Amino acid sequence: DVEPGKFYKGVVTRIEKYGAFINLNEQVRGLLRPRDMISLRAENLNVGDEIIVQAIDVRPEKREIDFKYIP
């Protein structure tokens, strides 16, 4: 289970104008929005990159997770 405030290692699987999709594993995926990329620009991300993200909002009923990148 993903808990708000905890840090996780994930892999960038898709990049859109509104953010990057980060997979923690095959069943868990969330969104890293540009406003939550402190000191990281979306254009510096590539599909396949491994990054550490913090879960900031977890909505299990919608199967949605928002992440924040903190260097």
Rank of each mutant, 00 (worst) to 15 (best):
G10I: 04
Y18P: 01
Q54F: 12
V11P: 00
V12L: 05
G5V: 03
I38Y: 09
Y18M: 07
R41M: 12
N44E: 15
M37N: 07
D57A: 15
E26F: 12
I38R: 10
V58Q: 02
V28G: 04
D36C: 10
K6L: 08
P71I: 09
R41F: 10
E16L: 10
N46T: 14
D1Y: 14
F7M: 08
M37R: 02
P71H: 09
R29S: 13
V12I: 14
V53Q: 00
G10F: 05
I15L: 10
I65L: 05
E43I: 13
P4W: 06
D1C: 15
G19D: 02
R33Y: 05
N46E: 12
L40F: 09
Y8C: 03
R35A: 12
G48A: 01
L40V: 08
M37T: 05
L24Q: 00
V47D: 02
R41I: 11
D49P: 01
L45Y: 03
R41S: 11
K62I: 08
D66F: 14
I65M: 04
R35Y: 08
E64P: 04
R14K: 10
G5M: 08
P34C: 15
R41T: 11
D49C: 08
R59G: 04
G19H: 06
S39D: 14
I22M: 01
I15W: 03
V58E: 02
D1M: 14
D49Q: 10
V12D: 00
N25L: 06
P34K: 15
K6R: 12
D66L: 15
P60T: 09
V11K: 09
V53S: 00
K62F: 09
T13E: 05
G19K: 06
G30L: 07
A20E: 01
S39W: 11
L31C: 09
Y18R: 07
E16P: 01
S39Y: 12
D66A: 09
F21N: 01
G5H: 04
V47L: 10
L32W: 05
L32V: 05
I38K: 11
A42Y: 15
Q27W: 15
Q54V: 10
G30T: 03
D49R: 05
P71K: 11
Q27V: 13
L31N: 04
V28A: 04
P60I: 09
D57Y: 13
D1L: 15
R14I: 05
G48R: 02
L24I: 14
N46A: 14
R41V: 10
I70W: 13
E43Y: 12
P71Y: 08
I51P: 00
G48T: 01
L32R: 02
E61A: 11
Y8G: 00
I22T: 01
E64S: 06
D49L: 08
K9D: 01
Y18S: 05
R59V: 03
N44G: 12
K62N: 09
G10E: 01
R14H: 07
A55T: 05
L31Q: 04
E50W: 15
L24G: 00
R59C: 08
E64Y: 14
P60M: 09
V12E: 00
K17H: 12
I52V: 12
I52Q: 03
F67D: 03
R14D: 02
V2N: 03
R41C: 13
F21Q: 04
K62H: 08
E43L: 13
R63F: 13
I22L: 03
K17E: 10
R33Q: 05
F21H: 05
N25R: 05
V53K: 00
Y8M: 01
F7W: 10
Q27E: 12
I70K: 04
F7Y: 11
Q54W: 09
V47H: 02
D49K: 05
V28I: 14
V11S: 03
K17M: 09
F67R: 02
V58R: 04
Q27L: 11
K68M: 10
F67Q: 05
S39M: 13
I51N: 00
I52W: 15
R29H: 10
A20T: 08
V53C: 07
D49W: 07
V12K: 00
K68E: 05
I52E: 04
Y69T: 03
K17S: 12
G10A: 10
I22V: 12
I51C: 04
I51F: 03
G30E: 04
E61F: 07
I52R: 06
M37E: 04
K6Y: 07
Q27Y: 14
A55Y: 03
P60C: 11
K68I: 10
L24V: 10
A20L: 12
F21Y: 14
L45T: 01
A55Q: 02
V11A: 01
P60S: 09
L32G: 03
N25I: 06
G48S: 01
I56V: 11
I15D: 00
N23S: 14
P60D: 06
E26C: 13
Y18V: 08
K68D: 03
N25S: 13
R35E: 11
D49V: 04
I15P: 00
F7K: 04
I15E: 00
P4C: 12
G30Q: 03
D36R: 05
R35L: 09
V28F: 08
I70F: 12
L45C: 09
K6F: 07
D1I: 14
R35S: 11
N44V: 10
E61G: 12
M37Q: 06
I65C: 10
A42Q: 12
F7S: 07
V58W: 08
R35T: 10
D57V: 12
F21S: 02
E43K: 11
R35K: 14
I52G: 01
R41K: 14
R59H: 05
M37D: 04
N25E: 04
R14Q: 11
I38H: 14
L45V: 10
S39R: 11
E16Y: 11
V11T: 12
I65S: 03
G19S: 04
E64L: 13
P4L: 14
S39H: 14
G10V: 10
P34H: 13
Y8A: 00
L24S: 01
R14C: 08
D49H: 05
V2G: 02
V47N: 01
R29W: 15
R33D: 04
A20F: 13
K9F: 09
G5L: 07
P60G: 07
N44W: 14
